[in-house]
Nucleic acid binder design. Structure first.
Lengths: 105, 105
DNA sequence: TCTTTATCGGCTTAATTATACCTATTATAC
DNA sequence: GTATAATAGGTATAATTAAGCCGATAAAGA
């Protein structure tokens, strides 16, 4: 991050690498090794290695790992409930994207 | 979340659904539709629908979407740099998991 | 009513990831 | 030096996801 505190990385590859590195640090801060963490998360050690190494992973593997590391609260901050009124910041939008009901097959 | 502010969902499926719902709210708060968001993210509309619907997704799709929504700062909070000294909280661990160097192929 | 827009879900094929297993490397313990 | 533990990375197969299509549904506007 820059000295202003923003994430400056751009490519998906760099972002994955950053996320993985952070997860690894968090795991170590918890005093857990990959084997124990993978077992708690219910994923394979290889999947955890790929996640930590930034070599491709699924959202499910990520969430399972976060839970195993007791870091689920991070989701709240990652994507907080949007309490912002969508209408408040729509200069160019004419019609408001309405809430859709279930589509009946 | 409970009134104490914690995430109470358990299963990976529920977590994916929550994450997807949050992303959808965030997208709407930005005044974007799925088509424009998918285009900005560089993913297919189907992949974005799966992500928002909690129907399985990859970390790459997640990160691309977050970037398209200008929500990358959330990563900082999701998994902050672990400045905690691992040795400080290792009651049962005998040896410290050392930093490994690159493995030479 | 008819049209347009946004979303949804199914489908097929291609690409990616998960799993299980293996060997190699590094650091620590003995 | 040897043994052990933790991590890295390769491979083959199975499972999952992405992409690109398609038609359907619901809401809003003309």
């Amino acid at each position: 991050m820059t000295d202003t505190g923003e994430v400056y990385l751009r490519t998906p590859l760099e972002l994955q690498a950053l996320l993985g590195a952070r997860l690894r640090s968090l795991r170590r801060a918890r005093g857990l090794d990959q084997r124990a963490t993978a077992e708690r998360a219910g994923v394979s050690e290889k999947a955890l290695r790929n996640l930590e190494g930034g070599h491709g992973s699924t959202v499910e593997t990520l969430l399972r790992t976060l839970k195993a590391l007791d870091a689920l609260d991070g989701i709240e901050m990652l994507v907080p409930e949007a309490t912002v009124n969508p209408l408040a910041l729509l200069p160019r939008r004419v019609r408001r994207p309405r809430e859709r009901n279930e589509a009946k097959p």
